[in-house]
Simulated assay, not measured.
Amino acid sequence: MRLLAAAVPDPTSPAVLIPFLLGMVGLFAAFQVYYWVGHKLGPKIYASRLGRRIGDEKILRAERFVARWGALSVYACFWVPGVRHTLPWVAGVLKISYPKYVAASALGCLTWCPVTYFGLYSVIWGWLALAGRSPAAAGAAAAVAVAAAALLVRRRRAALRAEKTAGPERTADPAGAGSTAGAGSAAAQGSASPGEHG
């Protein structure tokens, strides 16, 4: 196990830092592509294969979040699994201020990437150090982590099933507050007044 720990490169070495920096730049570039795809296609993107795969409920949630928080929602989406690659193109559809979008996405890349990357590295190093001292304790820690991950996945799947089951009831809502048929309505309003969302 000590040999394995020694084989893991130093997180500050060029062999690690260069791919990390390239990945961070790539993520920033992807966010700009997402924005302009949403900006150019507008609400039509909701009927695309991407929009159908994501689903009306997630799109509506993203619309509400962007409409309320503007560019701040772009920064926040980095920290929310499952939203990081959905909300940016919704922000483009709603035509929030692009300079603010660029600033928020840059800040997100500069904070989320190091925290997650080096945080994960720290966990790996810590686990290897524990395994060097006590393989049994390291095995127990790994088992607990796997069990916790499995529990989170089960809860997430149960929540998604509950949303799908409740979907028809929301669609039948006469007020239309939770109707999945309304996907893109906020986008249409946003596109009618570009730059209104900050």
Rank of each mutant, 00 (worst) to 15 (best):
M1C: 13
R2M: 07
L3R: 15
L4E: 00
A6M: 02
A7F: 03
V8R: 00
V8I: 15
D10K: 01
P19N: 04
L21H: 03
G23R: 12
L27K: 10
F28M: 05
Q32E: 08
Y34R: 06
Y34N: 10
Y34K: 08
Y34E: 12
G38T: 07
G38Q: 11
H39F: 09
H39T: 02
L41T: 08
G42S: 03
G42E: 12
K44Y: 01
A47V: 03
G51R: 01
G55T: 06
G55P: 00
D56L: 07
D56A: 15
I59W: 00
L60Y: 06
A62E: 09
F65I: 07
F65C: 11
V66I: 05
W69M: 01
W69I: 08
A71D: 08
L72H: 08
S73E: 09
C77Q: 11
C77V: 11
F78A: 09
V80K: 08
P81M: 07
P81R: 07
V83T: 13
H85W: 09
L87T: 06
P88I: 01
W89F: 15
W89H: 09
K95A: 14
S97T: 12
S97H: 13
S97N: 14
Y101D: 10
Y101A: 04
A103P: 02
A104Q: 03
L107T: 12
L107C: 12
L107Y: 09
L110A: 03
T111P: 06
T111Q: 05
W112I: 04
V115T: 01
Y121V: 02
I124P: 02
W127A: 13
W127I: 07
L128E: 03
A129Q: 07
L130F: 03
L130A: 08
L130W: 12
G132I: 12
G132E: 08
R133V: 02
S134D: 15
A137E: 10
A137Y: 02
A140E: 07
A140I: 07
A141C: 03
A142G: 04
A142T: 02
A143I: 13
V144K: 07
A145W: 01
R155S: 10
R156A: 12
R157T: 12
L160T: 00
A162C: 12
E163W: 00
T165K: 15
P168L: 09
P168T: 13
E169F: 10
D173I: 14
G176M: 11
G176P: 08
S179D: 07
T180F: 14
T180L: 15
A181F: 08
G182E: 10
G182C: 05
S185H: 12
A186C: 11
G190Q: 02
G190M: 07
S191R: 10
G195W: 00
H197P: 01
H197N: 06
G198A: 11
